[in-house]
Design a binder for these strands. Sequence first.
DNA 1: GCTTGCTCTGAAATGCGTTTCATACTTTAC
DNA 2: GTAAAGTATGAAACGCATTTCAGAGCAAGC
Lengths: 316, 316
Amino acid sequence: MGNIHDIARIAGVSAATVSRVLNDHPYVSAEKRKAVLDAAEQLHYEKNINAVHLARGKTDIIGVILPFASHPYFGSILSGIASAAEKNGFKLMIAQTNYDVNQEIDALNMLKLKQVDGLIITSRECPIDVVKDYSTFGNVVVCESWSGHQMSSVFVNQYEAFKEALHYFLQKGHAKIGYSVLRMDGKSSTARRKAYEEVFGFVRKDWIFDRALTIEDGTRLAGEWANLDDRPTAMLITNDFVAAGFILECRRLGFTVPGDVSVIGFDNHPISAPLGITTVDLPLHELGKIAFEQAIAAGNRSHQEVPFTIVERESV
Amino acid sequence: MGNIHDIARIAGVSAATVSRVLNDHPYVSAEKRKAVLDAAEQLHYEKNINAVHLARGKTDIIGVILPFASHPYFGSILSGIASAAEKNGFKLMIAQTNYDVNQEIDALNMLKLKQVDGLIITSRECPIDVVKDYSTFGNVVVCESWSGHQMSSVFVNQYEAFKEALHYFLQKGHAKIGYSVLRMDGKSSTARRKAYEEVFGFVRKDWIFDRALTIEDGTRLAGEWANLDDRPTAMLITNDFVAAGFILECRRLGFTVPGDVSVIGFDNHPISAPLGITTVDLPLHELGKIAFEQAIAAGNRSHQEVPFTIVERESV
DNA sequence: GCTTGCTCTGAAATGCGTTTCATACTTTAC
DNA sequence: GTAAAGTATGAAACGCATTTCAGAGCAAGC
């Protein structure tokens, strides 16, 4: 193996010249270039990337914070980020946080430690002000509606999307509408609640369903819904996985969809098509790509909204 | 900010002592420890992790190669790896390869470059012999049946699992069994084909369905199945996502499951429960954890088989 | 003929923390 | 009271590549 100085010695040049050859810098004579390449070959030389990172002061690595790697919502965003990273010669460091603040902080610290050049936060538990303070150490991108000059953001307008879905229900004759969220106090839940109040002038606690993220949650939700004395006739559900669990369990319980209850999901996950779930399409892969671009953007922070569209199927 | 030498100067000690304090080494007097901590505080000191990696010769980072980050099969494994990594204070570097050999090589090179201490290959396109050669640069773990001393492996016995599923079908009275795979020439496909031949003494090309990974593939598969003159009465399907797409499309086409065609999926993905898909449960999260343990294991390589179990539901 | 501007090269500084080695002082141990 | 063991600390080497600066040599421009 050996290092750059060994190569220099064997090739009879300086370490600087070796570095130039290895990095395709101009101004190296053909013969020295060859001598260096031969020596490198002979030594089976491999760069120590840590030395490179140290010397350059950057790593070409972007960190990604996501609560659950196995959930399709985050998986899609991650996939988008990864595609873009690959195209740009960047590597990805991921931190699965489980919405644990300590783990989030731990991941954020990668910025301080110069382990990553930028960081994408797909979702968080940690207060935004804490996150913000890390922006002095590198680009921070949040996947949520946020405006400010310290960080970039890329997001779906949750408020508008939710509102549009509600109006869709209204237009289809529904007046009793319930909805589910992942975390009652989460950012997008607040937007949803606000949209609901905007449209109806009130919210009914028993029509809001909490902790809904997975298919199993959807199944549970169906039971909770069925147990209500006064059931909503329409449900606006966190995502298509939850919607799938909800619909399938409702049917198992003897209800019909959309007969007894109409459903709109979010994400337009592939499962929604064969199940005929009407859903709000969110371009998550694209969102991931944009997040990556923002993460490597030099200097300029930006705020980008990605569009949503309602995909009409048979669950309403 | 500043570095360790600045701290040393301010605290009136040597850099070595600063390093000792920062790494909780013993043999530092209480007063010097305090002086160092105060100076570090004052300077808002943060370590440059790249220098640490360079000096230590390791990074506490494990690389993960996976073809598609957004697919639940790989998502589950990744999630298992990530849990274990977090518990052990390791970070994860991921490379989404799309089964592109160049990207796989690129990821493998992280080992040579000392960017990662070990590497987990959840699935690959690249020849195993090429992969093997990288094992001199760090622990390599493959998630497939492989025996040899260079690398560790953790896997489900695809051959046995497939065989057991076939026998399950046979026992339920099925003699015409088709199956789907992701890649005809993939490692597990070979095992499946072998198992099939073992049981039946032949394989029918038109009963083997290729390129089946996603829900959409399942939908397509249903069409292909329906178009056959001589249709299998049972299908052993790549995974539960494909099975879901297949079953739902079959029903849409007017067939019944398990009336016209029985189905067994793989993975025991949450979607299989509400859809009543009989499936071969694979402990993917656990497999990920084991892969991680192997990746950080000092010296000793191991080969671990994880168990599968058939989960009986209503699709057979 | 002289200046300007390339091309090419190496010494040395830079980025930064860890670890070994040597040294010196204290405590125990017998 | 002396040897052995432990505590405490710093200088210097080590891990390794990049980049700036200075300088030499040579060709083109006027």
